[in-house]
Amino acid sequence: MSGFLKSAIAGTFCLLSLAAASQAQTFSNAFAGFGSSDKEPIQIEASELQVEDKSNSATFTGSVVVSQGETRMKTDHLKVFYDGSAAGDVQQKISRLEASGSVYISSKDQTATGDQASFDMTKEIMVMTGKEVVLSQGPNVVVGNKLTVNLKTGKADLQAPSSGRVKVLIQPNSLNKK
């Protein structure tokens, strides 16, 4: 956990807004697993797979589970776009992942849920959207409706719905426990 985040939880309204931004950044680690390591394979399991060679894509449906290292994603539907032929080394050539339907991502004690998520492996950007995008780390929770994470730098941006606000719940002393 970053030192900035620990010190940001001071209790004043001004510092609460800083804590919200810092809390969102810590969640970027949960997403950095996909595509950031060429040493770890990406494993995908599903009820059904359809490969579309002409569009260089593969569609997984039915209780889809994606794993890479300590990062795991569960979703109803996943479309994988790749460069080159499906007969080649697809994991090295994945250019984009698009997940939809109850997207759940976890890594260690961090989780994120939303309705849709896309991973652009070339730009190293992940975007998760939904009626509510909920990020949690232990008892701490951040809620918005659009999360954008730069997988390379770890910078995260959580936006509120047009008619709402980003919500943050930080439990006292929860970040001091290891």
Rank of each mutant, 00 (worst) to 15 (best):
4 F>C: 13
4 F>P: 11
4 F>R: 14
5 L>W: 00
6 K>Y: 02
6 K>L: 14
6 K>D: 10
6 K>A: 14
7 S>W: 13
7 S>R: 14
9 I>K: 05
9 I>A: 09
9 I>R: 07
9 I>G: 03
10 A>P: 07
10 A>D: 15
10 A>N: 15
10 A>C: 09
12 T>P: 05
12 T>Y: 07
13 F>V: 02
13 F>S: 10
13 F>N: 10
14 C>W: 02
15 L>K: 12
16 L>Y: 12
16 L>S: 15
16 L>N: 13
17 S>I: 13
17 S>T: 10
17 S>E: 13
18 L>D: 11
18 L>I: 11
18 L>A: 09
19 A>N: 05
20 A>Q: 09
20 A>M: 12
21 A>F: 03
21 A>H: 01
22 S>V: 02
22 S>L: 10
23 Q>Y: 15
23 Q>P: 09
24 A>V: 13
25 Q>V: 07
25 Q>G: 01
25 Q>F: 06
25 Q>K: 11
26 T>S: 15
27 F>Y: 13
27 F>W: 14
27 F>S: 11
27 F>R: 11
27 F>N: 12
28 S>V: 08
29 N>P: 03
29 N>L: 15
29 N>Y: 15
29 N>D: 15
29 N>R: 14
30 A>H: 13
30 A>T: 14
30 A>P: 08
31 F>N: 05
32 A>C: 09
33 G>M: 09
33 G>I: 10
34 F>T: 05
34 F>P: 01
34 F>N: 01
34 F>D: 02
34 F>K: 03
34 F>Y: 01
35 G>E: 09
35 G>I: 04
35 G>N: 06
36 S>Q: 13
36 S>N: 13
36 S>D: 08
37 S>N: 08
37 S>R: 01
37 S>Q: 07
37 S>Y: 02
38 D>E: 02
38 D>N: 03
38 D>M: 04
39 K>G: 04
39 K>M: 08
40 E>A: 02
40 E>I: 02
40 E>V: 03
41 P>D: 09
41 P>E: 07
42 I>Y: 02
42 I>M: 00
43 Q>T: 15
44 I>C: 03
44 I>R: 00
44 I>T: 01
46 A>D: 04
46 A>I: 01
46 A>W: 05
46 A>P: 04
46 A>H: 06
47 S>C: 02
47 S>R: 04
47 S>W: 07
48 E>T: 00
48 E>W: 00
48 E>Y: 03
48 E>I: 00
48 E>R: 10
48 E>Q: 11
49 L>R: 05
49 L>F: 06
49 L>W: 08
49 L>N: 05
49 L>A: 07
50 Q>F: 03
50 Q>V: 06
50 Q>A: 07
50 Q>K: 12
51 V>P: 06
51 V>Q: 12
51 V>G: 11
51 V>A: 15
51 V>M: 10
